[in-house]
Computed example of a mutant assay.
Amino acid sequence: MACSSSFLHLLAALLALASWQAIASVPSPLQDFCVADLNSPVRVNGFVCKDPTNVTADDFFKAAMLDKPRDTMANKVGSNVTLINVMEIPGLNTLGISIVRVDYAPLGLNPPHTHPRATEIFTVVEGTLYAGFVTSNPDNKLFSKMLNKGDVFVFPKGLIHFQFNLNPHKPAVAISSLSGQNPGIITIANAAFKSKPPISDDILANAFQVDKKIIDMLQA
């Protein structure tokens, strides 16, 4: 029970911290809430508001999404990301916040990626992780840290970042809050080598300064 209580307290603290960050990037709501009408054909920046007379407590609730370990062996990088955003909780619409659980297998990686619409505040719940982010051109400076249980690290909005479980025997878990109801994610490898249709191998070979055969192998 003590472990469960501390876990809930950690979640509450992370949500509170992210809500302060949201002030800088998301306009203040003009009403108490604007529950997303995910079925509306109207397209706006965010989602159309559901009729307030049809709003219920369930629009602000998602049961047992972050309390259980996730399968980390389903992909080759050995991680599993569980995102709770406006698509999962329509009541998050216009509130500028979401939350993520990341499970890591031993030596599991959350590969280099960006969130184009959110800053992230990241806390290790179990295990030890090596985490870092890279600044924009022209410096491309790497800021990285070894993170242990309870440690907190911030990934600035839009910058490439990653986490890696250094332990070859034990899994790791982290919780993040993000300053956006739908922060988005761009995995760098997928964007470069798995676009549809694919980016020309001539372009990628020149960009990465490698032989086209290597590009063909990566795209495959």
Score class of each variant (00 low, 15 high):
residue 2 A to F: 11
residue 2 A to S: 15
residue 2 A to W: 13
residue 5 S to N: 11
residue 7 F to S: 13
residue 11 L to D: 02
residue 12 A to M: 11
residue 14 L to T: 15
residue 19 S to T: 14
residue 22 A to K: 06
residue 23 I to H: 08
residue 24 A to N: 13
residue 25 S to H: 10
residue 30 L to C: 12
residue 34 C to W: 03
residue 34 C to I: 04
residue 37 D to W: 02
residue 37 D to M: 01
residue 39 N to V: 02
residue 41 P to W: 00
residue 42 V to L: 05
residue 45 N to K: 04
residue 45 N to H: 03
residue 51 D to E: 02
residue 52 P to G: 07
residue 53 T to V: 14
residue 57 A to H: 06
residue 58 D to G: 10
residue 61 F to S: 02
residue 67 D to T: 12
residue 67 D to F: 08
residue 68 K to F: 10
residue 68 K to G: 07
residue 69 P to R: 02
residue 74 A to G: 07
residue 74 A to R: 11
residue 76 K to C: 01
residue 78 G to L: 03
residue 78 G to E: 02
residue 87 M to S: 07
residue 93 N to E: 00
residue 95 L to D: 00
residue 95 L to Q: 06
residue 104 Y to W: 04
residue 106 P to K: 09
residue 106 P to M: 09
residue 115 H to W: 00
residue 116 P to S: 01
residue 117 R to S: 01
residue 123 T to K: 05
residue 124 V to M: 02
residue 125 V to W: 02
residue 125 V to S: 03
residue 129 L to Q: 12
residue 131 A to Q: 07
residue 132 G to S: 05
residue 134 V to I: 11
residue 138 P to A: 03
residue 139 D to E: 14
residue 142 L to M: 15
residue 144 S to K: 15
residue 147 L to E: 01
residue 152 V to T: 15
residue 153 F to S: 08
residue 154 V to C: 11
residue 157 K to G: 05
residue 158 G to A: 01
residue 159 L to N: 00
residue 159 L to Q: 00
residue 161 H to C: 05
residue 164 F to V: 12
residue 165 N to V: 13
residue 167 N to E: 10
residue 168 P to R: 10
residue 170 K to T: 14
residue 171 P to C: 10
residue 175 I to N: 06
residue 175 I to V: 14
residue 176 S to E: 13
residue 176 S to L: 14
residue 177 S to M: 10
residue 178 L to P: 11
residue 180 G to P: 09
residue 184 G to S: 05
residue 190 N to T: 15
residue 195 S to N: 09
residue 195 S to G: 05
residue 196 K to Q: 12
residue 196 K to R: 12
residue 197 P to Q: 06
residue 204 L to V: 02
residue 206 N to T: 13
residue 207 A to Y: 04
residue 213 K to G: 07
residue 213 K to T: 13
